[in-house]
Simulated assay, not measured.
Amino acid sequence: MAELIVVRHGQASFGAGDAGSYDRLSDLGRQQAVLAGDALRAAGWLPDRLICGTLDRQRETLAAMGFDGVAEEHSGWNEYDFHDLLAVRFGGAVPDPVRDDRKTHFRTLREVILDWQGGGLVGAAETYAQFARRVEAARAFSTDTAAERVLVVSSGGAIGQLVATSLKAPPDQMIALNLQIKNTSMSRFIFAGHRFFLHEFNTTPQFVGPEAAKLLTYS
Rank of each mutant, 00 (worst) to 15 (best):
D172H: 13
S154C: 04
R110W: 01
R110V: 11
G193E: 10
S166W: 08
P205R: 00
L85M: 12
Q11G: 01
T184I: 04
R89Q: 08
V152Y: 14
P97I: 07
V122C: 09
L25N: 04
R24N: 07
R149W: 10
L40S: 02
M174W: 08
E200D: 14
A93L: 08
L167K: 04
G209R: 02
D38C: 11
T104F: 00
V70P: 07
D84E: 04
D81R: 01
A213S: 14
A140D: 13
M186D: 03
R99M: 14
G118K: 09
T203Q: 15
R133M: 09
I113Y: 13
S142Y: 05
N183T: 01
D38F: 05
S21V: 03
K168V: 15
L85C: 10
L28R: 12
L151A: 12
D68Q: 11
F106L: 13
N202R: 03
D68S: 11
A63V: 15
W45Q: 04
A2D: 11
R107Q: 14
G193I: 15
R149S: 13
W77V: 05
A138T: 01
R30S: 02
E72N: 07
L179H: 14
K214S: 05
H105A: 06
L35M: 10
W77A: 10
A39D: 02
F201G: 01
F207L: 06
L162H: 03
L121F: 00
L50C: 05
E136Y: 04
G92S: 02
G17Q: 08
A129Q: 13
G193F: 13
F201S: 03
R41T: 07
N183M: 04
I181T: 03
G91W: 01
Q173A: 15
L114Y: 09
G37C: 07
H74M: 04
A2T: 05
F141G: 12
I5M: 12
R8K: 10
V153E: 02
V135L: 10
I5P: 00
D84F: 00
V150T: 12
R89G: 08
C52S: 14
L50H: 11
R59W: 10
D68I: 09
H83G: 12
L162F: 08
I181S: 06
Q180C: 13
S75N: 13
F191A: 05
D101Q: 14
T145P: 06
A164G: 13
V122H: 15
E148I: 02
S187E: 12
D56K: 15
T54N: 08
Y22H: 07
T127P: 02
E148D: 14
M65S: 11
W116T: 00
E126F: 10
G69Y: 01
D18F: 13
D18Q: 01
V70C: 15
D18G: 00
R99Q: 12
Y22I: 09
G37T: 05
C52M: 06
S21G: 14
F67N: 09
A132R: 11
G66H: 00
Q161Y: 10
P95R: 00
E72I: 07
A129N: 04
T203A: 15
D38H: 08
A158F: 02
S185A: 14
Q130N: 10
G29Q: 05
D96I: 08
R57S: 09
F82D: 05
G69Q: 09
L35F: 02
E72W: 00
D48K: 01
L198M: 11
D68G: 12
P97L: 07
G120V: 04
V94E: 05
D23A: 01
H74G: 11
R49C: 03
T54Y: 02
P97S: 05
L167W: 06
G209Y: 11
A93T: 15
